[in-house]
Design a protein around this nucleic acid. Structure first.
Length: 511
RNA sequence: GGGGCGGUAGCCAAGUGGCUAAGGCAACGGAUUGCAAAUCCGUCACGCGAGGGUUCGACUCCCUCUCGCCCCUCCA
């Protein structure tokens, strides 16, 4: 089956073919580790995960690499926003407050003034969240998730190559800049052209800083700064690297190719980040192409609005999982969300449209996850767990695959399998085989055990069971008022109450 | 101002130049139930942001407008 992806580089949907047929090499822009990653970040990471899993579904071997930005970049290279505080310093300040208030566990970060400790704290949190949500590459740390600070050498090497190739220069301020005019293709990815950028509407670039550059769009590769919180020796003085260079270097180094297959990120990274990466890599390698495909996920909205801390709709993964999503009255629901539910919620709509994250959507996704899980349980019961492998000629699998092959149409794929998951297949062993393959991509059923929810406490489970027993007793003696009351109590604690042949059963709600 | 993406029922969300515009949720009717839940059966867009144009025929192609989102500053 032909795989087609929308390529930001050409603004069109193209048939995907790897450069080398042995393996697809893809790189995803990962998180900065100055704070917890939020669900918008994870929409992008999960989008990359779905690409990877889809490629694997179609039989490709995939080498997926992601970066962790732990260099203490300034909030702005040119201090144009007035603050100009180093992000790592800001994190340190926040960390000290959080330690005082007990938000950071005792001993988690010994010394907040050590940027590596802060980076480690948030890196660990990111990896934990990513694994909880089934992001495959997170299980390949540290081989395929690379720290920028561990790769300064290759950045220095690439900067040297760029100077040598005439793509970079040392400005009067001793800063090493990339010369965008030396790279004619600059702007191809984003559609921006140099003259348009020059007259850019933002006007937030300081004149002082611009005076040192040959062109206003020239960007920093290395900044000598002996006062910076994180600094390394270099031929251009002790300092730190520009933001864009790490991805160019680490993709090349770890993937072992000058030209890779797929590069992913959020839509905001198209310009300047990815544009600059292309200029750097191609400037250094002399190739015309850095990545054949550039794929970008649109932004996530929360209840129809931009996510922002001031609006109170800013959620981390753990906020959602631990029931801190607010309902329409602005109160936390208190209902723990199963990771599979959040995963599905964040991947279920097309990546090229804005996604609206809502409490209602979460409940919706919980229903879908439950249906798929119940379906699996039914098939396993019917077959004793013995699945028969099926190929793409199996009708449902074919529909599922066709949708995915068409620019990652997850919603279309779900449209095919959800009614199927409510049916009674005549060949349960084959159906189970199909479900297994489908789940390689979706990874939502069975519910993976990495759930923090599983620690709900055996005490609670026993209590709920006792309440169910009481309920059954009440029903037996036809004390329906008491029964209704007990049912209400159980429901209030986040369980669905069901009547089964073996008496009342309570199931924890998934969202 | 420039570059890019999107607007499909109460909500989420596919899709196609021409059979009856997927699927899910919600809602409604029925079976079932002490009542519910779960489950099962059924109903639910004469319409695809607005207006033009091309066409035998467009929601799908073209133009204009409009709304939303991202970027031109760090940001998934």
């Amino acid at each position: 089956m032909e795989l087609r992806f929308y390529n930001t580089l050409t603004n069109s949907t193209e048939v995907f073919q790897p450069v080398d047929s042995d393996c697809v090499r893809m790189y995803s822009c990962g998180p900065t580790v100055y704070d917890f990653a939020h669900i918008g970040n994870f929409r992008s990471f999960l989008f990359a995960d779905v690409i990877r899993r889809t490629l694997e579904f179609f039989g490709h071997k995939v080498h997926h690499v992601m970066n962790i930005t732990d260099v203490g970049h300034m909030t702005d290279d040119a201090a144009a926003d007035g603050a100009g505080e180093d992000k790592m310093q800001a994190a340190a300040r926040r960390m000290k407050e959080d330690k005082k208030s007990g938000k950071v566990p005792e001993g988690a970060v010994q010394n907040p003034d050590d940027p590596y400790q802060i980076a480690k704290y948030y890196t660990d949190a990111f990896l934990a969240d990513a694994r909880t949500l089934g992001v495959k590459v997170a299980f390949e740390y540290p081989e395929n998730i690379l720290h920028a600070t561990a790769n300064i050498d290759s950045m220095l090497e690439m900067i040297g190559q760029l100077i040598q190739n005439g793509h970079a220069y040392v400005g009067p301020d001793k800063v090493v800049y990339y010369s965008v005019e030396s790279f004619p293709a600059y702007g191809k990815l984003s559609g921006n052209t140099l003259d348009q950028l020059m007259t850019g509407a933002s006007r937030r670039i300081s004149d002082e800083n611009q005076a040192n550059k040959r062109h206003p769009a020239d960007f920093m590769l290395w900044k000598p700064d002996s006062t910076h919180i994180m600094k390394w020796d270099s031929p251009w003085g002790a300092g730190y690297p520009g933001w864009h260079i790490e991805c160019s270097c680490m993709a090349r180094k770890r993937l072992g190719r000058d030209v890779i297959d797929i590069h992913t990120g959020g839509e905001d990274l198209i310009f300047p980040h990815h544009e600059c990466e292309i200029a750097q890599t191609c400037g250094a390698t002399g190739q015309e192409t850095f990545s054949r495909f550039w794929m970008h996920a649109r932004f996530l909205l929360v209840e129809g609005e931009k996510m922002s801390k001031s609006k109170g709709n800013f959620y981390t993964v753990r906020d959602v999982l631990q029931g801190r999503v607010k309902d329409d009255k602005g109160q936390p629901t208190g209902i723990h969300v199963h990771p599979s539910v959040l995963r599905l919620e964040l991947i279920k709509s097309h990546y090229r449209g804005n996604m609206n994250f809502t409490q209602k959507g979460l409940v919706d996704s919980a229903g879908a996850v439950k249906r798929l899980s119940d379906f699996r349980a039914k098939l396993e019961a019917a077959t004793g767990g013995k699945a028969e492998p099926v190929d793409l000629s199996y009708p449902i699998l074919n529909e599922f695959a066709s949708a995915l092959a068409d620019d990652l149409n997850v919603a279309g794929a779900l449209g095919a399998i959800l009614p199927w998951a409510a049916s009674n297949p005549s060949d349960p062993a084959k159906a189970l085989g199909a479900l297994n393959r489908i789940n390689e991509v979706l990874a939502v059923a069975p519910l993976h055990p990495a759930s923090e929810d599983s620690g709900a406490g055996s005490g609670e489970a026993a209590e709920i069971q006792a309440l169910c027993k009481e309920l059954d007793d009440a029903r037996k003696r036809k004390d329906f008022a008491a029964a209704d009351n007990l049912r209400g109590q159980i429901q209030k604690r986040g369980y669905d109450v069901k009547t089964s042949p073996n008496g009342t059963v309570a199931e924890k709600r998934l969202a």
